[in-house]
């Protein structure tokens, strides 16, 4: 199941920020991680991922640099900035409250107030 565009627009950046909070990652790695860890729900192609990354970079939430990868080729690695960490923290709290609210309404099964 894939999310509708509007839901993805809200959830995607937070998911990316969360992944990058663990370690710096490159584009393909992010695509794979998102698909795998969300069981395909947050799977996104290059057309969605790279514009999202550029937007986050423009906002100063992430920063990028080219490094040599394991296979010897250069890859662009994205990492969370201080501003990005703060934003992620705020997003996590917001998502928790949202989940709680949706749970209390019975929209989210297994989550209740």
């Amino acid at each position: 199941m894939k999310l509708e565009r509007e839901l993805m627009r809200g959830a995607g950046p937070t998911a990316v920020l969360k992944l990058l909070s663990r370690r710096a990652m490159y584009g393909y790695e992010l695509v794979e991680a998102l698909a795998k860890q969300s069981d395909g729900v947050l799977a996104m192609g290059q057309s969605t991922l790279y514009p999202m990354l550029y937007n986050l970079e423009a906002k100063g939430l992430i920063e990028a640099d080219w490094r040599d990868g394991d296979n010897g080729r250069q890859r662009k690695y994205y990492a969370l900035t201080g501003k990005g960490k703060t934003k992620l923290k705020a997003d996590e709290q917001a998502w928790a409250k949202l989940a709680e609210a949706m749970g209390s309404l019975g929209v989210l099964k297994g989550v209740s107030a």
Partner: peptide, 18 residues
């Protein structure tokens, strides 16, 4: 990958913000 036209448009918008 998606439609190159749409991808180009999204990339253009986001890149301009940088």
């Amino acid at each position: 990958f998606g439609d190159p036209r749409r991808v180009a448009r999204l990339l253009r918008r986001s890149m301009k913000r940088k």
